[in-house]
């Protein structure tokens, strides 16, 4: 009998496969699939709204509506690259996080150019004002800089709860090779993240 950890991993794997199939059906032009995908991607505007609230509403409702459209367009353009290594809503939420942070940064910069006094009076909260978001951004940026295959193995291990065996199957490598990539990735992240985390603390 499989352990609860394995059962959880199997459940996640099934959900990822279902999402992958849904994306393929959508790209094949199935109109029913679009309706189902809309339910899964309905998280996009809501995630943006939550991020905006958490960070003191640096963007207006109109900005959020525009950004939501932009992100859906962006996601649509990348759908063909979705391989089901994450669930579709998790995958989409990373676009939301990244684009939201970029948008706030851009708005802050525009504000500083056009209204230096108001900016000086902190009219627009800086994107780095929330410690959680700073840490998440640091980790996500670190994984991007690390690159595959190490970043893929680490994401699948810690964000998708996969076993080294299923990671190996997905990447067509042995579980032991997946472990090697995992250790190298963690060692690299330690060298790159720990000094930055120390800077943040001081």
């Amino acid at each position: 009998m499989s352990s609860s950890k394995e059962q959880k991993a199997e459940k996640f794997a099934r959900e990822r496969q279902e999402d992958h199939a849904l994306v393929k059906e959508t790209l094949a032009g199935d109109p029913r699939a679009v309706g189902k995908l809309a339910i899964r991607l309905g998280c996009v505007p809501r995630v943006l709204g939550i991020l905006n609230s958490r960070m003191g509403k640096p963007l207006s409702d109109h900005d959020i509506a525009d950004l939501s459209q932009d992100i859906l367009v962006l996601i649509w353009g990348k759908l063909a690259t979705f391989e089901g290594r994450a669930k579709i809503d998790t995958w989409a939420s990373r676009f939301c996080f990244r684009e939201f942070m970029n948008s706030v940064r851009r708005k802050g910069r525009d504000m500083a150019k056009s209204h230096p006094l108001e900016t000086a009076l902190a009219a627009v909260p800086a994107p780095d004002s929330s410690p959680d978001e700073v840490r998440v951004k640091m980790v996500q940026d670190g994984l991007t800089e690390l690159g595959p295959p190490e970043s893929e193995v680490i994401r699948m291990k810690h964000f998708e709860h996969q076993t080294f065996k299923t990671i190996g199957d997905a990447l067509e490598i042995s579980p032991n090779t997946a472990k090697t990539h995992y250790y190298r990735g963690i060692a690299w992240l330690r060298r790159h993240l720990m000094p930055k985390a120390e800077e943040e603390r001081t």
């Binding site: 809501r46 939550i50 991020l51 509506a65 980790v139 964000f159 992240l189």
Partner: peptide, 29 residues
């Protein structure tokens, strides 16, 4: 500690999605 940061990032993402699921207002499906 790096692994803890990765887990915290995962929790952050999951919490964000859970909160998003619970939101009833805003643009709909």
């Amino acid at each position: 500690a790096v692994i803890a940061e990765l887990e915290a990032t995962n929790l952050y993402e999951q919490k964000l999605l859970k909160e998003a699921d619970a939101v009833q207002t805003g643009p709909g499906i």
